[in-house]
Each structure stands twice: as C-alpha cells, then as structure tokens.
Write a protein that binds this DNA or RNA. Structure first.
Lengths: 238, 238
DNA sequence: TTGGCTAATCATGTATACAATATTAATCAC
DNA sequence: GTGATTAATATTGTATACATGATTAGCCAA
C-alpha cells in the first residue's frame, strides 16, 4: 500500500468517512498545483480509483470538483485531463488578480498583526530556501500559499477562496507559459511586501503588489503552441 | 471515418447527452435564484430524481455542483438544503461585489457600444415591468442578469463568472434578510448607470455602482434568526 | 406527561454491473 | 505504402443494489 493510501485509510478510521474524499482531493489538487501533474496529463478514472483504493464513484466526484475549479478539463466520453490554459485565460486570471489582490492590500494592512507578519515571513523564508535547494514543487506551493494566506488576512472568506482559485490556475499558467526553473515571484518581493503591510502602508503595498503581479505576467512567453495539426509547411519552410 | 466526421459526430453527441444535465441544473439553480425554492428548503435526492426522471446519480452530480457554488448546503448523511447565508457571508459577498463590480466599471465603459447599451436598457426595462406587474421571480432574475451581463462586458470571463456567483448568492441573501416585496435594486438605478457607461465616464459609473450596492446592502435587516432552540422566556417575556 | 429505550423506516454513501461511445488494431483494396 | 472499413479493446456514462447512518414512531416505566 502506498503512502497516500495509508494516510487516506488511517485518517478515514480516525475521522469521519467524508474526510477521506477531502484528502484524496487535496492529493490530486496538490499534484496539479505543484506541477507534478503537468497540463495535458490524462487522468483516467480507473487508474485514480486504484491508486487511492476507492471506487470510480468517489473519483468522479473529485474530478468534477476539480473541473469546476478549472484545474482539470472534462470532455464528455473522453475523460479528464489537467487543464492547459489558453493565453486568453491567462490574461483574465492575471487581470483578476490585479483587481482583487491589489484591492485587498489596504484592508490587509489594517488587519495584519505581528503574529501574522511573522507567519508570512516564515513562508517567504521557506520559499527562498526551497528555491535555493532546487525543490521546485515546494517552492511553487509556498509561493501560491503566500498569496492565499495574504488574501485570507483580509477577513473576507469569499474573496480569499477566489484568490485561492486564481493562484491554483496561475500555477498551471506558469507551467505552460513560464520559463523552466524561473519561478514567478522574485525572491525578495514577498519580504518587501510584508514590510509595507506591517508598516500599515496599504497604498504602498497595493502599488507593490501591482508591480509584483505585472512582473510575473511579463515573465511569461505567451505563445500558444498549436499541438493539433501543426503546419509542416510553415515549420520546415515551404 | 474521417477526422472531420468524427469531430462532427462527437460534438453532436455532446449536445445531446450532456445537455440534459445542464438543463436540470439550470432548472434547480433558477428556482433557487428566483426564490421559488427558499433558503432552508430540503432537496431530497429521490424526489428530485423522480421529478426530472433521471437516477440519483445524476442528481447527486448536480447537487454537488450547486454546493460548490454555495447555493445549496450539503450535510453528510443529512442531505441537501438551499443555503441560508449567515450575516458574515452576506457582508463578505457585498464587500466582494464592491471590489469587483466597481473595479470593472472603467473597463466596461471603455468597451460598451450602442448595441450592448441597448441590450442592457432592454433588461432594465423588462425588470421594471416585471416589478410593476408583481412578477417577483422574474424581477429578481432580471436584476441579477443585469449585473452579470455588465460584468461580461468587461471581457474578463473569469471575473464575470465570479460576479455571477456573487449575484446568485445575493439573491439568497435578499431572500433571508431583505424586506418582502422590496427588491434590492432601485427602479431607475440601472438606467442611470447605463447612461454613465455609454458616456464613457468610467469613474462616474464606478462611484454610482458603489452607491448602488451600498444602498442594496443598507436595505437589508441583518438579524440572524436563531431557529434552533429559540429562547421562549425572551420571546414571551419572562 | 416526561424521559429513555428499541425497532422500524427513511435517506444518503458507496460499489458494482451494464450500456454507450471513443480509441486502437487489423484487415483489405488500390 | 496509403487510405478506408471493420473488429477489438478500453473508457466513460448511467442505473441500481446494498450498506450505513439518521430520523421517527412506538412502547414502557417512572
């Protein structure tokens, strides 16, 4: 039995039965966000059902949830694949982040305390460490978690959940359009941001977050790779 | 069979088979948004399965989708009910609308054309008509649709979908905390807004939308009714 | 009547069986 | 060898059966 199975079963017996689904959902979701499952990867129901030792019924429920969060794409009778975001979707996601994440900064600056700031600093620290040590997946996750935690500090659960979705999708976007090895967020950006927030300077934090997000978006190479019916004439010079 | 034929056939079958679920989903979703199904109403799987003549499997899929959109609340082993939003959730939803809908106005003002403005005017017109004629459900739907259509005009599908969710939840909030007969949106607000947008005055539109949303929120009576263990001493004067 | 116990009923959670469809492999004609 | 046609295989879609847990009803005792 794999680790994932063991964890799922143990927790199931300890907690209530419904918790198992949540764990499996997180396992798949994490794998996608951390880019261990890459965009375009096929997710067969049977295979997942075997890996997690539950029936296809439970897997389908989880796949549908992931589909509504736009992490996987469900094509009727052709199954599930990890979503490959289009250039348009990427633009929408980053525009949305500009509007929401920047808009939240003043409120976060008002609410943040020394404890929360310390927690954020710790996350930023671990992110840099993961980057230095070449732990790509951990770094990606910590970067996304940082932005989500920030949004949660606004106290608005609805907006925080929305930001969480946007960050997950951003991870997919980076996987498709980002340069390998280059994570979206610059090393010290997050630390600088915490400084402005802790100083209560909401407007400064807002402006910095705006630049931060623009920098990430600018680092992408937005070329739609057309993997269906490539024009050979065009490629090999007709 | 050629590729083109295969694609054509697949697309055809998609429209047939999967469309039924979508129709049923809309039927339930509409009933909730239009307040024909009121917050707290029980949604039994068997009953729904019988009404729509499909098996419980399909119903569960739909209920789970509605649960993720927070229109229904799924309690393990106790089934589904139309969500009864808390006061906190209501505040979060309207704060989110302030941030997002207002933030979109400048872009909408830039993009709106005469055709789009006419469409919006027609919706506003039909909304007023429905209100006059006492068609509560129709008025609620048209009001929500107006806000959603507006968000769609921004060109950002991600944000538009988010606004759609917020408007659906707002309908639930109005059902619980609103005064009966008094719809959230004032009669001529929507028309005024279109005027600002068509004039290309994004900032004016933004400010107006802000006041508009604040007015709706202010019209609510935010008293959490405790339906479990009501204090009889308190109620009947101890 | 109130309180607590047990049994019966009902509703949901899960797995599995079967049907429908897509994909792949094999065959044949040109 | 290329292309088309058919057979096979694989994979998802749907319904149903059974298990599990919740609610209600009935009963008896205090």
């Amino acid at each position: 039995m794999s680790d994932v199975q063991a964890v799922a079963k143990r927790t199931a017996s300890e907690k209530e039965g419904d918790e198992r689904h949540e764990i499996i959902y997180r396992a798949v979701s994490d794998a996608i966000v951390e880019q261990r499952l890459k965009p375009g990867a096929r997710l067969r129901e049977d295979a997942l059902a075997e890996v997690f030792a539950i029936s296809r019924t439970g897997i389908r429920k989880i796949l549908q949830r992931l589909a509504l969060e736009q992490l996987v794409t469900l094509t009727p009778r052709r199954g599930a694949r990890v979503t490959r975001p289009t250039a348009n979707e990427a633009k929408d996601v980053f525009d949305a982040r500009q509007l929401v994440e920047c808009g939240l900064m003043p409120e976060v600056a008002r609410r943040i305390g020394t404890k929360e700031a310390a927690e954020l600093r710790d996350m930023a620290h671990r992110e840099r460490k993961a980057l230095r040590e070449g732990q790509q997946s951990a770094a990606i996750r910590l970067s996304a978690d940082f932005h989500v935690r920030l949004a949660q500090l606004s106290g608005n659960a609805t907006l925080a959940e929305f930001v969480e979705r946007l960050c997950s999708r951003s991870s997919l976007i980076l996987a498709v359009y980002g340069h390998p090895g280059h994570l979206g967020c610059e090393s010290h950006d997050h630390d600088d941001l915490i400084g402005y927030l802790e100083a209560g300077n909401g407007e400064r934090a807002r402006a910095f977050m705006s630049r931060h997000l623009k920098a990430i978006e600018a680092s992408l190479s937005m070329v739609e790779e057309e993997d269906d019916v490539p024009d050979l004439q065009d490629i090999f010079g007709g």
